[in-house]
Amino acid sequence: MQVPAHFGYDRATSIDHALRLLARHGDQARVIAGGHSLIPMMKLRLAEPEALIDINGIDELRGITVSGDELLIGALTRHADLLSSAVVGEHFPVLHDAERVIADPVVRNFGTVGGSLCQADPSEDLSAAFVALGATGVIRGAAGSRTVPLREFHLGPYETAVAPDELLVEVRVPIRPGGSSAYTKVERRAGDWAVAAAGAAVWLGPDGAITDAGIGLAAVGAEHFTAPEAEEFLRGRAGDDAALVEAGKIAAQHCDPQADQRGPADYKRHLAGELTTRALRRAVARASGQEA
């Protein structure tokens, strides 16, 4: 039987209340959102916080809204809510593609967007999807708010820019015309973490050329979950298949997969390239109106 070590438990009623509780407990406290990464870690005693601060009652952390040319996603938004949101699907199909293959429907009822990003598991899918979209995280601490591009958010495996006394409160995704996006993942069985996964976003000019591209990679040791060399290669090019294949090759060259029970490193590298190309093809097809 797996039982967590002893801890104290506090329920925060507002963001400010949560920040006060975090300040009181110092770095011995951990925020709990869906708990679907933290509780398993505590059961295995890989995490032994002295205090848990439950943020599930904080309504201001919830919700998906469009404000100006940005989509705002509260940190406490559940996977299931992101998946069922029409406005998310309309602007960012990559997020719906990714959510369909994150865990299973029951886990998606509880796991949150903020928890996923803050857990910073190297195989985490939403990080790759948000990185492709050029999203930004809003972090609140006692001194106020700051924004961090998700490309600078992940400092390493299980390590983020959020300090122990801070909260991730929101993710902001810029809505830019002329673009679309897609996510592809290979998993061993339904609901499993990725062997490898790739997200792509492209923006096309009036002539169909790629004006901008974003690529996110999960589970293949890509720094900050991204492939900047492949993105740079695509900018200004016609979005023909040869270019998308070459971009996949470049992404594969620059990642650093590790062999584990999900597969050997060379297989994962192969997947990184192939999945990048497939995600790009789908994003281009969607952006040019050839595919839903």
Partner: peptide
């Protein structure tokens, strides 16, 4: 909402 109760705390 269905939840896997081995991964939720009673206090929650």
């Amino acid at each position: 909402t269905p939840v896997k109760s081995c991964t939720a705390l009673a206090v929650m």
